[in-house]
Amino acid sequence: MIPYDMTADDAGDRLANFEKELLVLPAVKSYLLPAFHLAQERLDWLPPESIVVISSHLRIPLSEVYATATAYSELRLEKPQYGAWYMCTGVACEAAGAQRLIDAVDIAPEKLGRIDCQFLCSLAPVCTDHHGKILGRLTADRVRAFFMEDIGD
């Protein structure tokens, strides 16, 4: 998904659509995390505008909404790099050569992030592609092939 960009032509429409869907959620505090998920699903991150909209709908002070969002490691408060991949660097993946894979594939660092565990340790080493698809039992050749395909897309 292309991350929401407030300067893009479709920014107004995307935010309005998100707000429309948000209104379906009950306006009670308990729905704060589901509201965050909805924003991230639709906009790919939590831009400041989305925090304002959530605060208003759930009637929670803006500072509290923001503070809570910062406490979840999977919520993105900065616009993500489009098309980034994530290599798992958990114990099993490290042992299976995750770092060697990162070194072996010549990819810009911002295009290949790291995550602590993808919870598929039985198929280590593992990474997640830019569509969120998990790829297991990786080799350097396989990662390079995926990236070539990705660029081809």
Partner: peptide, 23 residues
């Protein structure tokens, strides 16, 4: 659905998260 953090598996953190409080 949770949103990350090892601490989110701690039971009282889950309660706060469901209530909409900081985890």
């Amino acid at each position: 659905a949770g949103a990350g953090g090892y601490v989110c598996g701690e039971e009282s953190v889950i309660l706060n998260s469901i209530e909409g409080e900081r985890p």
